Amino acid sequence: MTTVTSGTAARTEGVGPLLRAWRQQRRVSQLELALRADSSARHISFIETGRSRPSEEMVLRLAEHLEVPVRERNALLLAAGYAPRYPETPLDDPALEVVRAGIERLIGGFEPYPALVVDAMYDVVAANRGVLALFDGVPEALLTPPLNAVRLTLHPRGLAPRVRNLREWRGHLLEQMRRNIALRRSERLRALYDEVAAYPVPDTACPEEPAEPVAYFALPMVIEHRGRTLSFVSSISTFNTPMDVTVAELAVETLLPADPATAEYLQTWLS
């Protein structure tokens, strides 16, 4: 797997091998990519072998058809000798005030249901009161900013001992991380994955059979909270066609009640 770690490394390696690696990862042939990008397989081959230098427009067109993340599109442009196209604006920058305000209104509107916003490293950048209530009893050491949603969920001193179907939910989270590692090629994300995958699974992870079978429409997270067993299903949304690296890597996750008992309890949760 080819990994771009800096602008200098990208320029040294050249755009051809990087585009070939993305194409192979997406399991797309040169001919198929050429048809998508209104080009020819010969031209794609010349680009990948360094015999032809693609235009800036072609780099962006190929990146779009290969579904290359915005951050990595900048790396492709650098490797081809062009300036990055997409800025990476800090979330606290005044330029993103509208984004921040919209996020706060969005997750606040989901209350009493838990909702949070995470970045590419699963660090929590915003959370509503429903999420904060779930963190009751978590040691302060794990709540030191930046809070990390995956670490908080899977850590043996975090939420893990309270998640009744931890083995299933853990498998879901780790698979999600593996997909993102393949998509983003991030060494930092790989290091986080290695950390949380190595956490021991508490003995309490063995699920108990419910008194009555429950037909869930998606894999739930079943968690104990203040003496009650709650069931949530997760929904994740992202910004459409973002033009900024920071915004592109934000994800809004909401936890919706998976059964009537949880929905009823949540109505009195924050009152």
Rank of each mutant, 00 (worst) to 15 (best):
residue 101 A to S: 13
residue 104 E to V: 14
residue 106 L to A: 15
residue 107 I to Y: 01
residue 110 F to E: 02
residue 114 P to A: 01
residue 116 L to V: 06
residue 117 V to W: 01
residue 118 V to M: 08
residue 120 A to M: 08
residue 121 M to G: 14
residue 123 D to N: 15
residue 123 D to Y: 04
residue 124 V to P: 04
residue 125 V to A: 02
residue 125 V to F: 12
residue 129 R to V: 03
residue 129 R to M: 10
residue 129 R to G: 05
residue 130 G to P: 07
residue 131 V to D: 01
residue 134 L to G: 08
residue 134 L to I: 00
residue 135 F to R: 07
residue 136 D to K: 07
residue 141 A to K: 10
residue 142 L to R: 06
residue 143 L to T: 13
residue 144 T to M: 08
residue 148 N to G: 02
residue 150 V to H: 01
residue 152 L to Q: 09
residue 158 G to P: 12
residue 160 A to M: 12
residue 161 P to Y: 11
residue 173 L to W: 01
residue 173 L to G: 00
residue 174 L to K: 00
residue 176 Q to C: 00
residue 176 Q to I: 00
residue 177 M to D: 02
residue 180 N to T: 08
residue 187 E to Y: 05
residue 189 L to I: 07
residue 189 L to M: 12
residue 191 A to Y: 00
residue 191 A to G: 02
residue 196 V to D: 05
residue 196 V to M: 04
residue 202 P to M: 11
residue 203 D to L: 14
residue 204 T to S: 15
residue 208 E to I: 04
residue 210 P to G: 09
residue 212 E to M: 03
residue 213 P to L: 06
residue 213 P to F: 13
residue 214 V to F: 12
residue 214 V to G: 05
residue 216 Y to M: 03
residue 216 Y to W: 13
residue 217 F to C: 02
residue 217 F to I: 06
residue 220 P to K: 05
residue 223 I to V: 15
